[in-house]
Simulated scan of single mutants.
Amino acid sequence: MANHSSSSNKLEDLFSHVPNKATHNQNQFFVWREFLWGAMAGAFGEGMMHPVDTIKTRIQSQALLTGSQSQKSIVQMVQTVWVADGLKGFYRGIAPGIIGSLATGATYFGFIESTKKWIEESHPKLEGHWAHFIAGAIGDTLGSFVYVPCEVMKQRMQIQGTKKSWNTSIMTEKLQMKSSPQMYCYYTGMFQAGHSIWKEQGFKGLYAGYGSTIARDVPFAGLMVMFYEALKDLTEKGRQKWAPNFHVDGSFEGLVLGGLAGGFSAYLTTPLDVIKTRLQVQGSSTSYNGWLDAMTKIWKSEGVKGMFRGSIPRITWYIPASALTFMAVEFLRDHFNEKLDNDNVQEVTRLAIEKPESSFPKVA
């Protein structure tokens, strides 16, 4: 009896530790899965909405490229790209765009989960919306080390279009360059663009507008996840109050709320995006000497309209892009996390059951 009781206690002790171990492994793996889901979702959103981003970049760059205050509308710009380059023109720069979104999506969603939990546990006063804002800002900042060089390459390729139209635009529109008659050579692809920028401008060229990118993306990323979580909380409270038995699919919720959060955040940070775009596409010219100089010159010459130039295509891009990204993340969470968690629990339980059997004393 004594031996049996001792063995039973050992078995109970072992099982008492299993849930903690399983929970620890699941939580740790959950964070790593968020990096994967975020990368996939970010690339998906960028790939789907790249043509709209091309139009936004070209609209924001017009004043710098032509030196004229007469700006084309969204419809006129779409017609210009289509006539000059066809469908290919809308997808120029998509390779660096997707790679940059892979990095940003991974760090954004991965660090949102880990940072948010850490903030809520170690700094309870910052829990809630502040925790969401800080987590989003940290995640996006870490992704910027890969994202910014990709963004520089992407945007320069977007404004170039095809080689024929780029050379034609340089001659007919007489670009206003101080240091050279041409901003930079034509980029045939992502790797050639990176090598060319590095050769001509070095590290500084690849990270052109880095400060302005951080100045735009930190508040944007923080606002977007804060708006998203706030809208989720508001939706959940409304559901519990008005329709407690109504179930909302996570993917659909991510689609709607992610789109709204992205649209709000995109509009509020449009002036920061205009400054960033101008600094990154100017190349070796000295139209703007830094973030503050760019903001001052744009404000003086173009006013509020100039600061919010491209806001409509920016919002048009971010509403569906954010919607698709959050939808993809929620879909991956719903369909893969549950299966992986169940597999992990079954494996841990199986091992826990097998091991105690050898601990029982053999009875002759």
Rank of each mutant, 00 (worst) to 15 (best):
H335N: 15
F191Y: 14
M295L: 14
M48R: 06
S6N: 05
F44R: 04
R58L: 00
G306A: 02
I98M: 09
G202E: 05
S8Q: 14
T104M: 04
S179R: 14
T104Y: 01
G45A: 08
E173G: 00
T270P: 11
L142F: 06
G128Y: 02
T188R: 13
E46R: 03
G254M: 12
C150R: 01
M190R: 02
F246C: 09
R314Y: 06
R33H: 06
A193H: 00
T57K: 00
V304G: 05
Y187V: 01
K21T: 15
G290T: 04
K241R: 14
F252I: 00
M40C: 13
S169W: 03
S284E: 07
T168I: 11
K174I: 09
S73C: 05
F145W: 01
I99A: 05
A2V: 09
A261T: 01
S70N: 03
N289S: 10
F29K: 13
Q79R: 12
G254P: 01
Q160S: 10
Q201C: 05
V78G: 13
N27G: 03
S114A: 12
N25S: 08
E354F: 11
T296A: 12
E46D: 09
A22F: 05
N3G: 15
K362A: 08
G263Y: 03
G128H: 08
G209F: 07
H132R: 04
S6R: 08
W37Y: 07
L292H: 07
I98V: 03
I55Y: 02
N9E: 14
K362P: 05
S284R: 01
T270A: 05
K204H: 11
K199A: 13
F326Q: 10
L324E: 07
A39G: 12
G194D: 10
V256H: 10
T107D: 03
W130G: 07
L231R: 14
E173P: 03
